[in-house]
Design a protein around this nucleic acid. Sequence first.
DNA 1: CAAAGTTTGTTTGACTATTCACAAAAAATT
DNA 2: AATTTTTTGTGAATAGTCAAACAAACTTTG
Lengths: 210, 210
Amino acid sequence: MKKISDSTISRLSTYYRTLSRLIEQNVETVSSDEIAEINNITSAQVRKDLSFFGSFGKRGLGYNTKDLREEIAKILGLKKQWNVALVGVGNIGRALIDYAEFKKQGFIIKALFDNDPKKVNTEVGGLKIHDIENACNIVKKEKIEIAIIAVPAKHAQAVVDTLVQCGVKAFLNFAPVTIKVPSDVIVKNENMSIELEALSYFLTQNKKGD
Amino acid sequence: MKKISDSTISRLSTYYRTLSRLIEQNVETVSSDEIAEINNITSAQVRKDLSFFGSFGKRGLGYNTKDLREEIAKILGLKKQWNVALVGVGNIGRALIDYAEFKKQGFIIKALFDNDPKKVNTEVGGLKIHDIENACNIVKKEKIEIAIIAVPAKHAQAVVDTLVQCGVKAFLNFAPVTIKVPSDVIVKNENMSIELEALSYFLTQNKKGD
DNA sequence: CAAAGTTTGTTTGACTATTCACAAAAAATT
DNA sequence: AATTTTTTGTGAATAGTCAAACAAACTTTG
């Protein structure tokens, strides 16, 4: 299959949420122009993104919100439940355990890991914290497919290496470092410092421009 | 000044962190090739990114880590302290208050806002929670320049509108919606669902490929 | 101090992503 | 039922990003 760009995939995610909201509001049809307007992009972009996967609209009318949402769910693989492990039960980790948005989209946190002996064997949010040493047993038992890395930067690579050994192929990394993985494994980064620094750059530029 | 791409700016952020780590390890010089290797990109990319802002290296030798870090700090506007407000003291918000990485880079949370009467006037992390109604007073008093939006999706736009009125020009948005702002205001998004869904897409594709 | 080896800064070319523009198809109107 | 309007899907044009390649500048070695 043709390689689809990361930006197309992340826009599909936003269309998915847009459609969910429209469905909640009992809207039944929507045009590419309306979807575009809501997300500050062009309608051509919306149609192009969708066209990689099929043609889901009706000329002269637009898209049926429920149908299109369903199609995007299929494309993104959201029709199944994903079993997720969370590594690092610190501030960020704890917040993510309770983050309702995840569960809503079918990402279920099934296992917690940490390396702090004080935390291991305690419970958070009804889940026992396991020693990262025993990762492979738990990964196998809970059929973990995705791991969220919320450990300090200096431990992130080691943690990922361990889990790659256990067969985990997808990572959401909150640690502010670049992680190296084999080519059949994917890492997506969530790095708040980068975005804040982009704001800092923007504000600095604008000040200069005055 | 020539418009610099977002990707260049976010790579500068990663170089900045790479350099910080190298300096900690007492490394004094580094080549574009080493920076590239650490971050899984090409050395041409590193040199290109830097070349937009000047020439900081020495042919045959590479870059002085401390000098280059300093230059990037200047470019990104990290030589000053940024006053930040956090709106929405829920799970995510609370985690961010304690997130040490922010403070390390000079982003200081100076004010907390919420709309929940139960939370208003209580304290978290040594900071009083203010009613979002009084935003402008506090923004002025604390010289807030950046706001972090950690409220539910349905309130995000209204909160941003309020703060734009108060003169805030930069937002880091954690709510999974597209926010509309005037053209002199910037919003950066931190949307974990998008990244998780990208992982879901990747895993789904690979399964099909088998 | 000359020759060989490094590494930068930048030009050029390749590739990717986005937007334009319009025919085709369907809906709405007269 | 014919005409006008709307909106999709897509091929072509434009714009933007990244990688290769190499001369110029500096370092190191013999």
